[in-house]
Design a protein around this nucleic acid. Structure first.
Lengths: 109, 109
DNA sequence: AAATGCTATCGTCATCGAGCGATGAATGGA
DNA sequence: TCCATTCATCGCTCGATGACGATAGCATTT
């Protein structure tokens, strides 16, 4: 049915503090997840695609499938990317909430 | 003579592209440098201090002096921090230019 | 000249990260 | 039911990272 596989992009305000020990940990974790060129590329890919991508990412990167899967796991664990099962494949998309969170934290520096 | 040890904060516009392979590498490198809680704390410290700090950083962090020095080196290599010799000690300060650069790159995601 | 104080660097160790091929689990189609 | 496709996970190697104590370099002060 071609429903967008990505969540409805909730717009509730983010009340988490922008500094303090927890914010430091959070920022470090998010930044660490982006701290690799391949993962930056993945995020860019997911940003440009209107629909969410699945294994096309593997085709776009000069890396083995297992390696790309690892990078996706890192991004998913950091909360920057979500993956939803779509039949035999898995549909990845950005998590706009945590991306905004990252921008806010970086902006607070 | 208590001259501020930090450079004059030049305001020339940043013409570097915000996306593409080079930008990906650059963003990854900058993010990687921030990808550790201690380094986030260091950046925050340097941001709040009016004057540039030197070894006070060691006092503020629960880490050995050599470890802090290592983290400072990482931040310096990434271009986020500058260190200038000030007599017997070394004065560290943020590099506002590359901090802005980081914000721009993150904003471009 | 010698001593002190501040940082950087070195050596070491444990852990993590990145990369790959091979294997395994789950789904959809033949 | 069996096969093909898709993705995750395992096992492995190797280099990078984080942490520390100890040591060396350098400027100021005595």
């Amino acid at each position: 049915m071609e429903t967008s596989c990505c969540a409805p992009n909730e717009l509730t305000p983010d009340l988490r503090p922008i500094e303090g020990p927890e914010a430091d940990e959070e920022l470090a974790a998010l930044a660490k997840a982006i701290g690799h060129p391949a993962r930056v590329q993945i995020i860019r890919l997911l940003g440009t695609r209107v629909s969410c991508v699945c294994g096309e990412i593997v085709d776009q990167l000069p890396l083995a499938q297992s390696t790309v899967s690892q990078h996706l796991k890192v991004l998913k664990d950091a909360g920057l990317v979500r993956g939803e099962i779509d039949g035999p494949r898995i549909c990845y998309c950005l998590d706009p909430r945590n991306l905004r969170r990252l921008r806010a934290l970086i902006g607070g520096l």
